[in-house]
């Protein structure tokens, strides 16, 4: 049967997710620290069992130490807890070039709440492109959209098109009942008119909903599956009593 120290170190290494050779060196180093700590606490009068628990408590959360051992910004960072940071980041919160998560921030971001140059999500805020249930951004295609150029079931933007569009200019043809437009096609300023091609690009997404939606769903399924596997890998280890 494994000692409490070993079980604690297992937990650290599960979160660190390092190659076997590196893991062994980390285990040896941390175990030496913990053993030394226990010996010192025993010398100070604590019973061995209490000393062991105290040493682990002072050593810190295995989650925190394990995740910190992963390095600052790896190619792929998958986490079942906290913020994943990597070129490809998958986690409850994710920050990366490609970020997938409940809250995702990246160049390309996908998630419940996503923020990036190109964003897709339930609530999407994109500098260039946002597509989601509620989107805000440069070019937005969404159920409810807010942006410089916005397209959607409900769109709010400088240039807006949708079932119900609210904007400085809702172009003719998108002017459905419920839409509000400050300018008409006759008096719209040239700079807004020049944004019209962007709007058409965004409309492409809406028109090709049957293509875009499966791609989006596939991405979400892959992201969820990868995260599920990570959670299973972490949970395969015994539940830890000091885990904080």
């Amino acid at each position: 049967m494994k000692s409490i120290l070993d079980r604690y170190l297992d937990r650290v290494l599960v979160y660190a997710n390092k190659p076997a050779s590196e893991s062994e060196a980390i285990r040896k180093e941390l175990k030496d620290h913990l053993q030394q700590k226990v010996e010192d606490l025993v010398k100070n009068g604590l019973p061995r069992e209490e000393a062991t628990l105290e040493a682990l408590r002072q050593h810190g959360s295995p989650k925190v130490i394990g995740y910190k051992l992963r390095g600052p910004f790896p190619w792929i960072d998958i986490r079942s807890y906290g913020t994943a940071r990597g070129v490809i980041a998958i986690g409850p919160k994710a920050v990366g070039i490609f970020a997938f998560g409940g809250f995702a921030v990246g160049i390309f971001s996908f998630g419940g709440f996503s923020l990036g140059l190109f964003s897709v999500g339930g609530f999407a805020l994109g500098l260039l492109f946002a597509w989601g249930g509620f989107g805000m951004g440069g070019v937005v295609s969404a159920g409810m959209a807010l942006g410089i150029v916005a397209v959607g079931g409900m769109a709010v933007g400088l240039l807006a098109a949708g079932g119900a569009g609210v904007g400085a200019w809702v172009p003719h043809g998108w002017n459905h009942p419920g839409s509000t437009s400050h300018y008409t096609d006759a008096n719209v300023p040239p700079f807004l008119r020049s944004l019209n091609p962007l709007l058409n690009d965004a409309i492409w997404f809406t028109d090709h909903f049957t293509i875009v939606m499966p791609v989006f769903m596939f991405t979400l399924i892959v992201f969820n599956f990868v995260q599920y596997r990570e959670r299973r890998r972490v949970e395969a280890d015994d539940a830890w009593l000091i885990d904080g």
Partner: peptide
């Protein structure tokens, strides 16, 4: 020096400096 000794030295000079746990020095 080694990890445990460094923790002792840090704690001696600045008690409570490793508030998130002694083990957090290893990633650093």
């Amino acid at each position: 020096s080694y990890g445990y000794q460094m923790v002792q030295d840090l704690n001696a000079k600045a008690p409570g400096v490793l508030k998130t746990g002694e083990g957090t020095i290893y990633p650093v």
